[in-house]
Design a protein around this nucleic acid. Structure first.
Lengths: 132, 132
DNA sequence: GTTCGTGCAAACGGTTTGCAACAAT
DNA sequence: ATTGTTGCAAACCGTTTGCACGAAC
């Protein structure tokens, strides 16, 4: 896998150790962490990392379209390393967010909005584990 | 249309003037207001209404399932007077949220999650007006 | 020595909570 | 008198901002 230095260079972001650590974490995780979860986890390897640097770096990565923000939880933004079109399933008990492949649903063309340019379509499914 | 007093009574909530004013507003608007928008608008008719009372009342209405919260905007919750299943279209420029009828999309049964109980499925469409 | 990035702390905005005053029964 | 409601202010939490210190060229 491409290393964090070249990823950052390609995006014209200076590869500092802090940014490399954040990139390593966020692009490797299958999860959809919040800024705080990123901070907590990356601090294990980079204990002096500050909250501001995490937000700065994540916002930079969003600008450069390496990751996406998702509005799926109340009161906090989560960051999604998967920038391909896809859907989400949210376990309402654990709060875990799972990716759902794009072709799971046949989302029809939206012809009823001729003067709008659609920028994103997403199916959001929420549920909880059955207790038998 | 049923008045706010009987609506509140039916839900076993005491119909105080403040609550009636909030109910009148939230159940009549086709919009998806935030708590602050509710406060701002209801204060026109009820100027002493406090922010805390708005939150208390809205949360009560959510509990009683008269309205629903929707996580569609960053950093704030919006309240949806339409509790039927439906989808949403969000104009990314204006921030306006529009209801999309449920049968606009054929959301297939999700058989790939046998041990999960699906509580909600929703298509979220974002777009902006074309500038010709 | 200038530029850029970091870390800390303060500020910010939406939401919740604690509490005293008050209204209704 | 008891119960429940309101309004205010403070607290809270995620996020952003301001600024001084420090590293790199």
């Amino acid at each position: 896998m491409e290393n964090s230095i070249s990823i950052l260079r390609r995006c014209a972001i200076q590869p500092t150790p802090q940014r490399m650590a954040v990139v390593d974490y966020i692009l490797k995780t299958p999860s959809h962490p919040s800024a705080d979860e990123v901070l907590e986890n990356v601090r294990k390897r980079c204990p002096t990392l500050s909250r501001a640097t995490v937000y700065n770096t994540l916002n930079l990565l969003v600008e450069k379209q390496l990751i996406k923000t998702q509005i799926l939880k109340e009161g906090l933004v989560v960051f999604d390393p998967n920038i391909q079109q896809h859907h989400h399933f949210i376990d309402e008990d654990s709060g875990q967010i799972y990716d759902v492949p794009w072709d799971t649903f046949q989302v029809p063309e939206i012809d009823s909005l001729p003067d709008y340019e659609i920028t994103e379509v997403q199916v959001v499914v929420r549920g909880r584990k059955k207790k038998p």
